[in-house]
Design a binder for these strands. Structure first.
Length: 466
RNA sequence: GCCGAGAUAGUCUAGCCCGGAAAGGCGGUGGCCUUGAAAGCCACUGGUGUUUCACCUCAGGAGUUCAAAUCUCCUUCUCGGCGCCA
């Protein structure tokens, strides 16, 4: 959410942003009401403080009188009446503050960066970067899920039997690939100064509400643990990585703080239905992900936004997956939290379309204000606690990645190996075998053996890499 | 899960029994001094506000009271001891 102080001092900026997003009159009216309530609230606070002041003074007088062995009954009469008055005024104030908070949490959204394009919906997102050559299949492709089952790399029916629709089992090389992709992302990010974090997979309601406003939808989006005040996390960046520092103050010297959150697994109830590949690995109840998360000083956040995107791009380039990057427009899926958001969309040959697999956002101060996370600036006494900026970007979400690989692979059908798109990069990292495993047959076998050896002996693996 | 002891500012700690303005050390910031630095000395160092002043704050919440870090109850977490368990 935006700082109250900011809204109070810059109502026109807030209104202009709502208008840019195509905001309606109702929301603009809410802003006016919010500003009015803010004035009211501060007046009430002053009244309350005056009464508290009086109470404190009387208390002190009683103390002094008792010390001097004087009669205190004269003071007690007024003293006894005050607490009730104060309580009443406090209750009234709380009601007004509750409304302010309500508005503050729902409107206004974050102030958009000037480079965010205006558009009605996702079709008007602006593509500004493309890498790799999308494969256009010359014959009908098979569903990646089917193919995986056929090759003994996944199970859907047995997963459904024990867990329900939307679940899967990864087997054999596919299970290993899933882990290897996470490992790859952590290696790349680790070299670049990101600290790997494995967070708890459950979070209590209070912490979750600090992170995101799900309203009444809480139970529909997330899995709740019966009999416990715990929810399975839906993603790693918001819940643990953002909430872990809530109500804390950073020392300037600790910024920027760069984290690589490993969230096996993320749990989601809502997965929707996605056309031809509904069955498979693209949208599931449970998936694995490595997420970049950064806390930084405001002046650094735009450069870091580009850095996060570059990290994600580098990983996808190592994997040889063609993708494009779009700048999400005002009517797209930009949400209320991000000031600017890039999506990386990977090419899905079967659908002959780019599909979102990475979402990279600069949330500026919006999240940190809501979570009450601040930075201490010892040198700036005017603005002792400048707002902190937060950013997040997917590094890999493994099942969507798998699906991308499979899309590519299914284009080759049973005709054999497909050379990695970026062999040099992969070879350097000894990751080429991964892609070859995916090609599913013949010449890949030798490299596959190499992969197993390396994978099962991570120390040797590290030595070979250097 | 049971029993016991705890939670005080960036950090370490005093205050709690016996209710009456949160004391001090370290660390940090600024200043004096110095060619420069160290040492020493001085000031500031929980939060908010309409900032000579006021209010809030002692893990969180509720209660008793004119008045709660302090008394009572509940919750959370930490540390011991016991039990259970991969």
């Amino acid at each position: 959410m935006l700082e109250l102080k900011f809204i109070r001092n810059n109502p026109d900026v807030v209104r202009a942003d709502l208008t840019k997003r195509g905001g309606d009159d109702e929301k603009l009216a809410w802003i006016d009401d919010l500003l009015e309530k803010d004035i009211q609230s501060r007046d009430m606070q002053i009244d309350i403080n005056t009464m508290r002041n009086r109470r404190n003074i009387i208390s002190r007088e009683i103390k002094e009188a008792k010390k001097a062995k004087q009669d205190i009954s004269g003071f007690l009469e007024e003293a006894k009446s005050l607490p009730a008055q104060i309580r009443e005024a406090e209750a009234a104030l709380e009601e007004v503050n509750g409304k302010i908070k309500f508005y503050q949490m729902r409107i206004p959204p974050n102030i958009l960066h000037e480079s965010v394009p205006v558009g009605a919906d996702d079709s008007e997102n602006v593509e500004f970067k493309k890498w790799g050559e999308p494969v256009v299949p010359s014959f009908p492709l098979r569903n990646h899920g089917e193919l995986a089952v056929e090759k003994g790399l996944a199970e859907f029916e047995r997963a459904a039997k024990i867990s329900g629709a939307g679940f899967y089992m990864l087997k054999g090389n596919l299970a290993l690939l899933d882990l290897a992709l996470q490992h790859l992302a952590l290696d790349v990010l680790g070299e670049r100064g990101y600290t790997p974090v494995i967070p708890p997979y459950m979070m209590n309601r209070a912490a979750y509400e600090g992170v995101t406003d799900l309203g009444g939808d809480f139970e529909n989006v997330m899995y709740a643990i019966d009999g416990e005040d715990e929810f399975l996390i839906a993603t790693s960046e918001h819940p643990p990585m953002a909430a872990m520092y809530m109500n804390e103050i950073f020392d300037e010297k600790d910024l920027p703080l760069k984290l690589a959150g490993v969230s096996p697994p993320c749990f989601r109830r809502e997965i929707g239905s996605h056309g031809i590949d509904t069955r498979g690995l693209f949208r599931v109840h449970q998936f694995n992900k490595v997420e970049q998360f950064v806390y930084c000083k405001p002046e650094d956040s735009w450069a870091l936004h580009e850095e996060l995107l570059k990290n994600s791009e580098d990983i996808f380039q190592m994997l040889g997956l063609p993708y494009r990057v779009v700048n999400i427009c005002t009517g797209g899926d930009i949400g209320t939290v991000a000031a600017k958001k890039y999506d990386m969309e990977v090419w899905m040959p079967r659908e002959e379309a780019y599909r979102e697999v990475v979402s990279c956002s600069n949330c500026t101060a919006y999240q940190s204000v809501r979570l009450n996370i601040r930075a201490r600036d010892a040198h700036d006494f005017e603005n002792k606690y400048p707002p902190l900026h937060t950013l997040n970007s997917t590094a890999v979400a493994t099942t969507p990645d798998d699906s991308g690989h499979y899309g590519k692979l299914s284009g080759r059908g049973r005709h054999g190996c497909h050379p990695p798109r970026s062999p040099a990069a992969l070879h350097e990292r000894r990751r080429d075998s991964l892609i070859l495993i995916f090609s599913g047959s013949c010449e890949g076998v030798k490299k596959l053996n190499t992969f197993f050896r390396l994978f099962h002996f991570p120390d040797i693996f590290k030595m070979t890499r250097r």
